[in-house]
Amino acid sequence: MQLISCPWCGPREEVEFSYGGQAAVAYPEHPAALTDEQWARFVFFRDNPKGPFAERWVHAAGCRRWFTAVRDTRTHRFVSPSEVTS
């Protein structure tokens, strides 16, 4: 049972959180201008690095805030708890 640091509530057990996948995948500014392939990339494709990975978490059982955290996928260690994403 890992601890995850909520920027607001502090360290809590991982069961209090839900995972939101890769962080900073911005919604395209003009979806209509994209080719089908470009759109499919946005909808379905995500990075899968071996090493630090910026991802989104929500403190579902606590303050309900979404935040970005960097986790090393080799060790599951959180590298640097970052501020609430903007």
């Binding site: 939101g20 962080a23 919604y27 989104r56 579902a60 309900r64 979404w66 609430v84």
Partner: peptide
């Protein structure tokens, strides 16, 4: 209910801030 609220919050908090 919970999934819809979480998803609405995700849009609001991370995309359409």
């Amino acid at each position: 209910a919970a999934a819809v609220l979480d998803s609405m919050e995700e849009w609001l908090q991370t995309e359409w801030t």
